[in-house]
């Protein structure tokens, strides 16, 4: 069964680019443009295998989103990756603290992204 990845980023360009490379790798991809929207999708029953969220977004930033997701019982064990940039080193620690599984540094080369996702999802090969 194809794994479902939920991407949260305030940039449609970024979403489009990631979605494209992940779909190419055989993942099913859902997207949301900020934390509030993402949370609403999850509350409505979206059940992704992995969540990747940007850190700086309007309405609800990544840290808050991770906190909120972790508070939902059905997502307590879900892998969550935080999307950071070089200027957000402090957010890596912080995201880990609130429950992120790891982080990625933008822009992520497609190969690396897929390798990390496969590792987190314990994908074969």
């Amino acid at each position: 069964m194809a794994k479902l990845i939920f991407l949260v980023d305030d940039s449609e360009t970024m979403l489009m680019s990631l979605k494209h490379s992940l779909e190419f790798e055989g993942f099913v991809v859902e997207t949301a443009l900020d934390g509030v929207l993402a949370l609403a999708r999850l509350e409505q029953g979206l059940n992704p295998d992995l969540i990747i969220t940007d850190m700086s977004m309007p309405n609800m930033n990544g840290i808050e989103l991770i906190k909120n997701i972790r508070a939902m019982t059905k997502f307590r064990f879900k892998p969550i990756l935080a999307f950071t940039t070089t200027t957000q080193k402090h957010l890596r620690e912080e995201s880990k603290k609130v429950g992120a599984t790891g982080w990625l540094v933008k822009p992520v080369p497609g190969k690396e992204l897929v390798a990390i996702i496969n590792q987190l999802l314990q994908h074969k090969n």
């Binding site: 929207l37 609403a40 509350e43 409505q44 309405n59 840290i63």
Partner: peptide
């Protein structure tokens, strides 16, 4: 780290109210 923590706090404070409003927001969106 202190100053970073401060900016984070500022980041975080206005967002709390969105928790409650998440449903409205999703409907609007």
């Amino acid at each position: 780290t202190e100053s970073e923590a401060n900016t984070e706090k500022l980041d975080a404070s206005p967002e709390i109210k969105f928790n409650r409003r998440s449903e409205d927001a999703s409907a609007a969106a």
